[in-house]
Computed example of a mutant assay.
Amino acid sequence: MTSRNLVKLFWNTLLVGGVTTAIVGLFVRWHELQPYFVHFKIGDIISALIWLIVMGFLFSVISQMGFFAYLTIHRFGLGIFKSAALWNGIQMVLILFGLFDLVYLRYVNFAKPGDSILPYLVPALFLLIVGLVVAWMKSKETNREAFIPALFFMVVATLVEWVPVLNENAVNWFYTMVFALIACNAYQVLILHKLNKKSEQERQQRQSQSDNRAKNNKKMNKKPSI
């Protein structure tokens, strides 16, 4: 990927994180922010929105760090196991293990006696469904081999990035952060191949222009025959 498109990916993902967190945060924390809107406290409304957007930028940076870390791990995995099928199988096991931990560990650590396990199943099912949709879109736009890596990143990487909030079980940040992470992760997964293709086209265009300039210079420097 060219540096220009890499910078574009960074800023666009940053924007996705900021906007998503601001929108979700307004809904999730509405009970706290409602008085500001009822009494038209413009300064407080702007301050709250700026704070949510800044937090969204932070979530976006975490997402991008996870994305580039996974790209490195994915290459290492393919190199170590020498088989895409074997590496995909390992990723599937890790996906199931991660979803199980999301349900079981949260239930064991935070559920009260007599609580149903259903509320702890919902986030895992939601994350899996979103991951399947994004992975399907990725494989449709690229190839079948991209399905498992995309699903792994959407599920396992999101869980790893989500850990600070999962440990605290803070309801407001629980939903605000996961929606921001999902939006940023999905955007990066679905835009990467497009930016790579665009970067390749830009390199070919620059190479073509360079070749044309070289040919023109050669013609200009050629001595006239007598």
Score class of each variant (00 low, 15 high):
V24I: 12
V24L: 06
F27P: 01
F27M: 07
V28R: 03
R29V: 04
R29Y: 06
R29P: 00
W30I: 02
H31E: 08
E32Q: 14
E32Y: 11
L33S: 01
Q34S: 13
Q34W: 07
Y36G: 03
Y36A: 04
Y36I: 04
F37R: 01
F37V: 05
F37E: 02
V38W: 11
V38G: 06
V38F: 11
H39L: 09
H39Y: 15
I42Y: 11
G43L: 13
G43V: 06
D44K: 14
I45V: 15
I45Q: 10
I46P: 03
I46C: 06
I46G: 02
L49R: 09
I50L: 11
I50R: 11
W51R: 09
W51T: 14
W51H: 08
L52C: 04
I53E: 05
I53S: 03
V54Q: 13
M55H: 10
G56R: 00
G56E: 01
G56M: 02
F57W: 15
F57V: 11
L58W: 10
F59C: 12
F59T: 07
F59I: 11
S60D: 05
S60R: 02
S60I: 04
V61L: 13
I62F: 05
I62Y: 05
S63N: 04
Q64I: 08
Q64H: 04
M65A: 15
M65S: 15
G66Q: 01
G66E: 08
G66Y: 02
G66K: 00
F67K: 00
F68H: 12
F68Q: 13
F68V: 12
Y70L: 05
Y70T: 06
L71S: 06
L71I: 08
L71G: 02
T72Y: 07
T72S: 13
I73K: 05
R75I: 07
R75F: 06
R75S: 13
F76N: 05
F76S: 03
F76R: 04
